[in-house]
Each structure stands twice: as structure tokens, then as C-alpha cells.
Write a protein that binds this DNA or RNA. Structure first.
Lengths: 352, 352
DNA sequence: TTGAAAAATGTAAGCGCTTACATTTTTGCT
DNA sequence: AGCAAAAATGTAAGCGCTTACATTTTTCAA
């Protein structure tokens, strides 16, 4: 009777199994100790095939499933990961996070997602919340945050991976891509088409290092092509179709009309597309427009969008793998994924 | 020394506070028992103002935050809610779930979201997973699922709220709206405009009671208007812009061309819109198109969409409130929210 | 066959918190 | 001032699991 879960004697009137079975019940049913049951569940190779079978049969028979809180408390790990993304409102992060989640799930881990609304202070708060909630590790977007945050994570020994960015210079684990280089490559292509008057619709660069890098990339290309990088006309706004529309109109009503408008992401580009067609501008004959990300929206836009394809799914998967490795005491390497340009119908030769 | 967390004597070399402080440390620092600290945190009104202050000061000073696993284990509640939605890929559920989450967060609760890909079997699996993970309560979409699932929840005493639907006949807690009635109202309007040949692009109705109800609503209106409900031309497909496009073309290439196409949601409607303009049909002169949901997409579509507005945010909030009430042993009432028709530019008089 | 090393299993001490119950303090009367 | 009831606080027993360590069983070379 050593392992029955309740101290009371067996009643003559048997309980109708309304109670959820616990580890000790399985142990009793299988005639082994709780430690053995625990091993069968967590480290099956430390147990005889025979006992494994007996125990697993008991598990099935009782319909046992472990209490995660108890497990977390005893083991000191929650198997819960956190991700803090700037927004859930549009699809920018959806695919990558989805892949991240799937990869975790396959390994028995859970994901908690929070959003920061592109605000550093809120991000910090969310990081603390998720940590307190017991997240074993975190996925973050970009590098830009107070050093205090990094110190906090360091102190708590919580592995974190930065995503959507890549900078080998930084001594931080990252799984992402080089925004600046990716955008430069697309800009090179735009310049090759003969455009000299370039506009750019970007997310707000102050709180967003990815956006900043992308704008930088355009300037790099201009410089390389012998143009004045300062001539780039930049409109900053928040990511939304509506805002892309507005920003495009602003660019078009300025003193110098750009012949190509490079957008910081596909959502803005679709807004620009809409504005252009509302202004009776033909694409790409009158104006070229490019995006970034290659989300579904890009391919179903009124005119399919020339954009930069980002391997979101692979990024999510690798990020998960890296964090799980870090939790196992390994020292995973950062990975920089290649992006590639996705040529569709919105980029053409400069007019005239 | 009764409440220090470590049994060892104070070392001469003080630890650099690397260890995360625990309840007992706070108790020791405040000079009270662990019970009192716990009460300060959970039921502050059961404690003197004075001790509350002392304890909270200690909490701040030590930077204490409770271990949620331990709390969950001891209290038998996790303060975690689960939501299982058919898909995260488009924005249909985003707003409602976001509001649900915000409401929970305000009350110190966490949300775990999983998706079922519109498959009953996967939904059941996710329900079990979330339950095992310790979800105290669940938000589900629609009514349609095996009775076994309801029994399971009943047995485990896990409150669940059905959302995006409302049927007072069902003896289940729900916070939602009447899909059939909502769609009928819109269909009434379409019929008033003189349309007699109606098409419908719907989600697959087999696994989706909301979609089924909406189609039903159109038929109700036709019947009421003296038309043959069986004459409704229905195309079923999965929710995506692309599929809406394809379905629209199918409808238009059938033996009878509908003059109005009512879509099961806004995403499909935007696809239909795109197809129409690709086919050089003017909206609404040549063909009327309607949506359902009123997500952002609807108002930024090439032609702003006439659609049914669903109060997603309020639905999410009420759902959260209902579940929290249920967990407190109350018996919350189901709530049916009103929808309303959002008239924009895609519905016009029947041609000729 | 024997015995030491390796493998399997068992024992029991927590993990950090909540809460029933016991005890002490305060309150509000008379 | 004195007393019973109410309020505040303290005591300590778990919540269900993992795991260090102890014990038993198996393996395998001599």
C-alpha cells in the first residue's frame, strides 16, 4: 500500500473514478515505485523494457496524464517558451511564430505569445511577465532594447534568441537574416532599372532596428550606384494598408516625384498599390513599387508584388531548435538565413 | 529565523542575491509568516493596512515575484485559460481573441491559444492537451463537436464558453451572435435591391456550423421573399482571398449568373472583388458582393465592402468575464450580441 | 561459480506556494 | 474596564511531481 495516493483505507463503496489519477495511482496499479513511473515517462531508456510496458499499460488503463504544475515545480523547468512580437494585428510575424510553435510542440513544449505594440517599455514588461510566468526561454524580435533587459535575462539564466535580424558582430544568439543586405539587393535591382528618384515607405525607424536597416540598405545601393543617399525620400508610418496608402500619396505630392517606391513591408506596399491605382497611376509603367517579407498578401495583391522573400518558417524552426539546444546546456550558433528576391509585376523600368 | 528559506546558517560571505527570492524570503524580510505574505498578495483585504505596506515594501525591495508553478500546484488553479480556434492564418479570430486575452490579462490570467485547422479531431486533441497543461477554462468556437468532448469537460469540471454562435436552445454557455439571423438580415437587404439570382461563397459547411447557419440565413430570406431557397448557388471553399477569387469565377461561369454574391466572410469577399475586377465587372453596377465579419480588410478593400459587422471585441470580453464568473462558482448567462449591417459600396440595385 | 561493476529500482526529501485550522490581537459592546 | 465576537496572524500539512542517494538486481569477466 506504500504508493496509494490517498492515505485513507479503501472504502467498501469504491469511488467512481471521478478523481483524476495521479502518478502514485499509476505506481500502485503497476506495482512499482513513483520514481520508476516518473522515469518511464521522462527517461524511458533508464528502465527495463518489461517495466516500461507494465507502467505504460497502467498509464493507458487509468488515463493518466501528468500535472504540469507539479512537474514544473519539482523539475525547475516549465517546458514553456515565450515569444514577444511587436504586433499580432497583421500577418508579418504569424508564419514565423507558427513554425516556432510547431517545432516546440513536437518536442512537448508550449508557447506563450505576447505583443509589445512596438514599444520598448511594453516589451520589457512582457519579458518580465513571461519570465515570472515561468518561461524557460524567449524568442525576441530584433536587437533593440535596453541593456538592462539583457542583463536581467543573463542573471536569470534565461536563454533568448533574437530573430528577424542577424549581426555576427553582436554577441547574442540570433536566427534571422540581414535586413540591410536584403534590401540593398532589391534596391540594386531597382536602380538597374534606371530609377534615380527613389521613395521609401518605412515603419517607424526609432523603435525598429529592422526598419532602420532596410532603409539603410536602400541608401547603400544608392551610394554604390553613385547617387546621393540623402536624396532618398522616406515616409515613416506604422504598418497598415491604410497608412501605406496615405504615405504613398504624400510621396507623390512632394516636390520630387519618385518613380520607384520601396516599402518596408508588403502591407505598406499593398497600401501604396491601392493609392497608386486610385491616383490612376499604372504599375509598373508609371511607378514601381516593392515590398518586403513575401506574405500571402503579396501574391494576391491587385498587381502581384515584387518583394523580398523571407524564409519565415525556417527562421521559426531554427529559432526553436537553438533555444532547446541552449536549454540543454549546448552553445548553439547563430544562423543567418538567406533571403531572395521575388520578382513579380510591380517593378519595371523607370518611365521615359 | 523561522521563515528563512534556506536551512543553512547565514554565511559570512553574503550571497550576491543571485538566487531568485521566494515567498519565505519576503516573509523573513518583513518579519511575518509566509501565510501573511501569501495573503497580502492574493487577498489584500484580509490583512492590516500596516502589514500590507511592510510586506509590499519587502516584496519591492527583494524584487520578489511568485513562482506560478508552485502557486498553481498549491492552489489547484493555474489561472491559465485556453482558446482553440480554427485558424490563426487570417484575421477572422484575431480581434476577438485579442480582446479575450486583454480581459484575462487584466485579471492576472494567461491565455494559451491553439488552432484546430477546422478539424474536429484536431480540436479534440487540442482540448485534451490544453486541459492536461492545466487550463482552468476554455474558449471554443461554435457548437459542433462530439458529445464525448462535452462529457470530458463536464467530468473534469472545466468551464467552457462557445463563441461566434448563439443558440438559446442549447444548454451550453455561449457568448456570440446569431449567424443565421445576421445573414438573413443582410440577405433581406440584397433582395430588396431587386436581386433574384443569388450566389453564395461559403466556407465548407460540413465542419463549420457558423458557415452553415449563414447559408441558411440567405435561404430564409429567399423563402420569405417568395423565392426558391434551393435556387441559391453555393460554392464552398476554404477561407482565403485566392479561394474567393476562384469561387467567384466558378459562379460566374455557371449556367445562371448571379447578380449578387454573398460571401461567408470578408476574406472570401475580397477575393470575389478581385476576380470581379479581373473579369471587368463593375461593382456594384454589374454585380453586388457582400461580406461578413467586418475585419480591417473590409474597409480597405479596393471597393469598400458592404458586410455584417460582428462585435468581436465585445464578444471576447464577455467570454472572458463569463468564464471567470464560472470559475468563481457563479452561473453566468449566455449572451447574444447584436450584429449590424455595415453598408459600404459593394451592394447595389440588380442590373437592368 | 564468484564477485565487482553496472543497471534497475526504491526511498524520501524537497520544489514554492496556499489554506484549513489554531492562536493571538483588535474591536465594539456594556 | 471587561468580555465575547470578529479580525488578523501564525502553524504546518500538503499540492503532484522529480531526483539524489540508497538499495537491490543483473551482467559479465575471470
Amino acid at each position: 500500500m506504500a504508493y496509494t495516493s490517498s492515505g485513507q483505507m479503501e472504502q467498501t463503496t469504491k469511488q467512481p473514478t471521478s478523481e483524476v489519477p495521479k502518478l502514485a495511482d499509476v505506481a500502485a496499479a503497476a506495482g512499482v515505485s513513483t520514481a520508476t513511473v516518473s522515469r518511464c515517462l521522462n527517461t524511458p531508456d533508464r528502465v527495463t523494457k518489461k517495466t516500461l510496458k507494465i507502467v505504460m499499460d497502467a498509464v493507458d488503463r487509468l488515463g493518466y496524464s501528468p500535472n504540469y504544475s507539479a512537474r514544473a515545480l519539482a523539475a525547475g523547468r516549465t517546458n514553456t517558451f515565450g515569444a514577444i512580437i511587436p504586433t499580432m494585428e497583421n500577418a508579418i510575424f504569424a508564419r514565423g511564430i507558427q513554425a516556432f510553435q510547431e517545432e516546440l510542440q513536437e518536442n512537448g513544449c508550449t508557447l506563450l505569445v505576447a505583443s509589445s505594440s512596438y514599444r520598448e517599455d511594453l516589451e520589457e514588461e512582457q519579458i518580465r511577465t513571461l519570465t515570472v510566468r515561468g518561461a524557460d526561454a524567449l524568442l525576441l524580435i530584433g536587437y533593440q532594447r535596453d541593456r538592462r533587459v539583457y542583463e536581467f535575462l543573463e542573471k536569470r539564466k534565461i536563454p533568448a534568441v533574437m530573430t528577424w535580424v542577424s549581426d555576427p558582430e553582436k554577441n547574442l544568439l540570433s536566427v534571422g537574416f540581414n535586413n540591410r543586405k536584403a534590401m540593398k539587393l532589391l534596391a540594386d535591382l531597382v536602380l538597374e532599372k534606371g530609377h534615380t528618384s527613389i521613395g521609401c515607405i518605412s515603419a517607424e525607424t526609432a523603435p525598429n532596428d529592422r526598419a532602420r536597416d532596410r532603409v539603410h540598405g536602400i541608401r547603400d545601393a544608392m551610394q554604390a550606384a553613385g547617387l546621393d543617399p540623402a536624396a532618398l525620400m522616406v515616409e515613416e508610418t506604422q504598418y497598415s494598408i491604410e497608412n501605406g496608402d496615405i504615405a504613398f500619396r504624400k510621396l507623390m505630392s512632394g516636390p520630387v516625384r519618385p518613380t520607384a517606391v520601396m516599402c518596408g513591408n508588403d502591407v505598406l506596399a499593398v497600401g501604396a498599390l491601392r493609392a497608386a491605382s486610385a491616383l490612376n497611376m499604372r504599375i509598373p509603367q508609371d511607378v514601381s513599387i516593392t515590398g518586403f517579407d513575401d506574405i500571402e498578401l503579396a501574391s494576391v495583391a491587385p498587381v502581384p508584388l515584387t518583394t523580398v522573400h523571407v524564409p519565415h518558417r525556417r527562421m521559426g524552426q531554427f529559432a526553436a531548435k537553438a533555444l532547446m539546444a541552449a536549454l540543454n546546456g549546448e552553445e548553439p550558433d547563430s544562423v543567418e538565413l538567406p533571403t531572395n528576391i521575388c520578382i513579380r509585376d510591380t517593378l519595371g523600368a523607370a518611365p521615359r
